[in-house]
Design a protein around this nucleic acid. Structure first.
Lengths: 135, 135
DNA sequence: TATATTTGTAACATATTTTATTACAGTATG
DNA sequence: CATACTGTAATAAAATATGTTACAAATATA
């Protein structure tokens, strides 16, 4: 199972891009995603820690972008919400006495690193603004 | 959480490639992966349904490759064990009355489709033999 | 032919991760 | 001062992944 973190974060950021002059409440955002507002606030907390958005507490509070959506790319958003692209690893440590077991994770890592590089290149070419303009 | 299906399957196939003349038992394979033999047999069942390996039941039974490891690529193995590369979707159906909610999954899908194409291209260039030769 | 070994598979149990809910303190607005 | 927000912790529920037990069926070989 893949967590919805990236998708949720993109959704939030797209909304903020569409309403650049408003502080949007977590409740409003949650209504669009169809998600619990607390979970929205958690993703917003993550975005805040990366200085991508800023929030205002109290009545009429909410969140707005604090970066130019033309200047931030999906790659950066990806990195804030996802470790790396990969096709998984077996859960347990493989047998170090087997030549295959000894190197399997290392070789998978190398494969996945290449994948990440390719995906990163793709995501780097798409700004938040680009993505938002599709709506 | 990403399931270890792909990693486990690659591990199995690498072992089979390394011992092309033997029927390897699920117990032996499980010992290298450090995994329950039943789970190994489940992945083998999947490989059998794709005609990649063949098994012999009974004493001294086991599994061996039924394809040329130089002729099968990681892309094919990927497709047998993984649906698609993606960065996830929010769990619930988004609000169709919101312009963003209405199109978010469609736009994410398009993004992920591009990702898959790039990754597929990479995996297509690596045969099982190539991968196994790293050990 | 009897025994031992192995696959195939179902049923069930446990562990882990993801999502949801409740609760409430703190803060700003009007 | 009442209202409407954020921030965050604690807990619960749901979904998925992994592990275990059990046993029928198959087959080599002694």
């Amino acid at each position: 199972m893949i967590s919805g973190k990236f998708a949720i974060t993109i959704h939030i950021l797209t909304l903020l891009t569409k309403f650049p002059n408003d502080y949007l409440s977590s409740e409003f955002i949650a209504g669009s995603i169809n998600l619990n507002p607390v979970l929205v606030r958690k993703e917003i907390a993550n975005l805040k820690s990366h200085n991508v958005v800023e929030s205002k507490e109290g009545k009429n509070g909410g969140t707005k972008l604090s970066v130019d959506p033309g200047k931030i790319t999906l790659k950066e958003i990806f990195e804030m919400t996802f470790e790396t692209i990969n096709l998984g690893y077996a859960k347990n440590q493989p047998n170090p006495d087997c030549p295959v077991g000894k190197k399997i994770n290392q070789n998978l890592s190398a494969l996945y690193a290449d994948m990440n590089q390719k995906v990163s290149l793709q995501l780097e070419g798409i700004s938040l603004e680009d993505f938002s303009n599709q709506f």
